[in-house]
Design a protein around this nucleic acid. Sequence first.
DNA 1: TTTCCTGCAAATAATTTGCAGAACT
DNA 2: AGTTCTGCAAATTATTTGCAGGAAA
Lengths: 161, 161
Amino acid sequence: MTEPADPAQIHGAIDTVEGVLALFRAGGGRVTSSRRLLLHALFDEPRDRTAEEIAAEIQTNSPDVNLSTIYRNLDELERLGVVVHSHLAHGPATYHLAALAHGHLVCESCGTTIEAPPDLFSGLSRSAQSRYGFQIHPYHFAVVGRCQLCHKQSHRNNIPH
Amino acid sequence: MTEPADPAQIHGAIDTVEGVLALFRAGGGRVTSSRRLLLHALFDEPRDRTAEEIAAEIQTNSPDVNLSTIYRNLDELERLGVVVHSHLAHGPATYHLAALAHGHLVCESCGTTIEAPPDLFSGLSRSAQSRYGFQIHPYHFAVVGRCQLCHKQSHRNNIPH
DNA sequence: TTTCCTGCAAATAATTTGCAGAACT
DNA sequence: AGTTCTGCAAATTATTTGCAGGAAA
């Protein structure tokens, strides 16, 4: 289970728990209860969560599932194209289903996160492509800045930048 | 030395070692040899470097300057508006003079970093502003993606995304 | 001579890894 | 039976912090 896999070529849908489990099996992997639990957690609550938050939820019912198992399986799911993770400002990464990928605008003053639809990045995407041949993945790292409220406040108090 | 400072209001230029040292003094801080050494390192070699790289350079001549002092003074310089730091893909943050701030496109396959001029982000900047009132700082986190070469290779080998 | 700054060691946070046993197929 | 997975503890990486002594003003 370490070769890159192309989901499109392997029988098994990426949008249901059983479909993803089939993907694991198809790649020589095994269907285990921690994998099933993790997938249920991801599909049941599709918002961005840290590995720790996902682990905590699973552990309320299944306390023996270890955080390192969560990390290992999230990595595996990312390789399979089922989940993606994002780095918001400082602090831990957040994970969510790849189908729900979106950009993030994070205020560096108050920490508020705005979830941005993919089209917000289409201009940047085109410029990076045409100028550098670079294909951006606007979901992986947050775009940091100041939200409206904090921007106004910093002006009022003469705080630079 | 913990209140926010507005460089525009304090006498002392931000673009020379002595000017910045004057800024420290003006804020009630002290001019120390580690601060002078750090500023020389930053002005002499204005490319992006990690705290560790900067420390290593300083330590070739002054082995007693500690890494934690470098971190503390880089933070202080950032508060003064003299340096900024960026998070490239994974790994440590890099620091450079604020006057030379620029965006980064980092290839997640090969790690290559493209330094992007501010105008690459002007479209995104406008959209984020008009849609959300959000003022982006495109320098703090890298924009991740695939460079031209890796993008082609991944297509050739059918590696997803 | 008082406050600030520094070196050193230890703490922290997030994640990764080694290993021996347990669980899939 | 033979791999693959898992739990647990320990390692790692990047950075921060506490503290007591040393240096600037």
